[in-house]
Design a protein around this nucleic acid. Structure first.
Lengths: 340, 340
DNA sequence: CCATTTCGTGGGAGCGTTCCCATGAAATGA
DNA sequence: TCATTTCATGGGAACGCTCCCACGAAATGG
């Protein structure tokens, strides 16, 4: 049942003026007589007229919407990033279209199509862990739609990126464990397909090197971030002839899961096994003992990414620069790596 | 720099047919010769044509978008609801426009306007804790845009609602504490302005009544859900001449905060003070001791609400029924209310 | 074999704006 | 006072699509 929508034409007719004038009055165009504008505004209010963004969007060929594609919604990380981005977008009058790729390449491609169909003015994206082919991003470049990567970025595409200093963060986290007196520090790493996994691994190794510690391949495990597997790997580590006395996990959910397994096995944290995570997720302060972690400025990632995107949207594509913004991490020390 | 968009006219010209035919071919209209359709499809692919939703939306006067207004994004509850809703919406080809009211009435009103301007086909909403005036919702009814409330619902408006059985949940939670042998059970309640607060309070009281326990006003505190205040109230309770030996908190963040305060004060949980929450948030399993809580089917709330909304969108407004779907809660017993 | 239905297609209005150009009135300057 | 600029407004194309109506050709039926 579509009842009639109130349009500027309705207003124009009642006021016996043209729709052009109504349009100008409503959009704040200077060359409209004050009394005319007044009358239009009042009548609009009275008829509860709402400007039709659908028409405005078509007319202006832009949606005033930015798209965000994230791999998942389960951990608190992405929702917080989205919140940050949404804030910045809203300040400039932009809406946000959200879609999750479910860590699946095909869904990511489909989502990209939806973004295109909806004529978003730009896209913020953090890739699936299985995305290795980047052709579906080319079309954005061809169509002149700016793209900003965050967190899980693609280095094969020239586009702005927002990341945290994964290398430095991992370096500091590992060094923290070394300075704590830990001798055998294990690393539960992410999949090598992710740049952040590789960088964190690198930081871990370099910290060991700096302090002249051996890098033991036994103690480095790469996994695909499906949490169910953490138990297997942690048990494996604990069952080694000479087990590690510390664990640096690639992210907080992994670390939290690891803590649960370690406690289950009856080991004391941090005495027998210290644990450090990465990102300072919501649960990290709650678990017992509290999780030492490299905090990422999660909300800020969203804000910075959105700002970068808006900047691109508002400048000519010929002057786009593929800036990479590297945000700092901060070591938060809690019980999992602290002698009481 | 707006380069030319590929439109159905471009395809039509290349193929020397009319745009009507191209449109029909692309939308799967039956009366198009198979070879024509084939040719159109191929050329469209080749020119990487993307249907322009902006135009389709204007033409059809509907956006194929549903709006969701939530009060906040901080706890894990709303993101999960949104995820559930998004899944259902996506299945029917609907996009989701998200906005957060920041627990502020004015923002909620502004967000409602944005939804209207974007011509969303329906809105899912959970109100601000300070929303007492519902006029900004009337316009949706006037314009025939369906509205579905969830979680924090408005009973003054005839519209579908999705809630959990707050009364029963609170009743069971309280009864659980009674059966545990607790004698003085306090309740840290939400603001009376929220229906769910009132219902939970009612369930709490009725459980006490059923078991012939006195209802002690000293032990019932209503607060505005700003977590910083939990400390004050919990301390107040603990400092009473005869302090309570159990606490039923209106939601999990409150309960978690309470546990932290109780531990800080050196009391043992659950021996000296048992705690039960409501909703089974992400952190509840992590905190030590684990938080006993009434689990809500969070994701399902989003799914059901979205489905109800889609149902309304697809039926004539004259046959809309203000169904209230009440989902069941489930008691999850953890360390905060369990001997050992 | 002619009248009627079916099929595939073309033409064009309409969705509600914005924005450019035109127009006439008022204001300005010499 | 007349030419020129400024101002407030109107008219209409454009945005890209859908959908209704019309039309000729082919298929059908008696």
């Amino acid at each position: 049942m579509k009842r009639h929508q109130v349009t500027i034409i309705d207003i124009a007719q009642k006021l016996n003026i043209s729709k052009s004038t109504v349009s100008r009055a409503l959009t704040g165009h200077p060359s409209v007589r004050t009394d005319t504008r007044q009358a239009v505004m009042e009548l609009a209010q009275q008829m509860d007229y709402q400007r039709n963004m659908l028409a405005i969007n078509l007319s202006s060929s832009q949606s005033r919407t930015i798209g965000i594609i994230v791999p998942e919604f389960v951990t608190s990380f992405f929702p917080i990033v989205i919140m940050g981005a949404q804030e910045i977008a809203a300040q400039s009058g932009y809406s946000v279209l959200i879609s999750q790729s479910n860590e699946t390449y095909e869904t990511e491609v489909a989502n990209a199509k939806v973004m295109l169909a909806n004529r978003v003015d730009g896209v913020l994206i953090s890739m699936t862990r299985e995305t290795k082919n980047f052709e579906h991003f080319d079309v954005f470049k061809r169509k002149g739609i700016p793209l900003v990567f965050f967190n899980r970025v693609c280095h094969d595409i020239e586009t702005p990126k927002v990341v945290v200093d994964d290398y430095e963060g991992a370096f500091k986290a590992t060094e923290h464990l070394i300075l704590l007196g830990k001798k055998r520090i294990a690393h539960l790493a992410g999949p090598p397909s992710l740049y952040i996994s590789r960088k964190r691994l690198e930081g871990y190794k370099d910290a060991l090197r700096k302090h002249k510690r051996p890098i033991l391949d036994d103690l480095i495990i790469s996994y695909d971030l499906t949490l169910e597997k953490v138990k297997i790997y942690v048990k494996y580590l604990l069952d080694l002839p000479t087990p590690p006395d510390a664990l640096f996990a690639v992210n907080d959910p992994t670390a939290i899961e690891a803590i649960n397994v370690i406690k289950e096995q009856g080991l004391s944290i941090p005495e027998q096994m210290a644990v450090v995570g990465f990102s300072n997720d919501y649960g990290s302060a709650l678990i017992e003992p509290g999780l030492t972690t490299m905090a990422q400025p999660t909300r800020e990632i969203g804000q910075v990414a959105a700002q970068l995107l808006l900047d691109q949207i508002h400048t000519d594509s010929s002057v786009w620069k593929p800036i990479t913004r590297v945000l700092k991490t901060e070591l938060i020390i809690r019980g999992s790596s602290q002698r009481n």
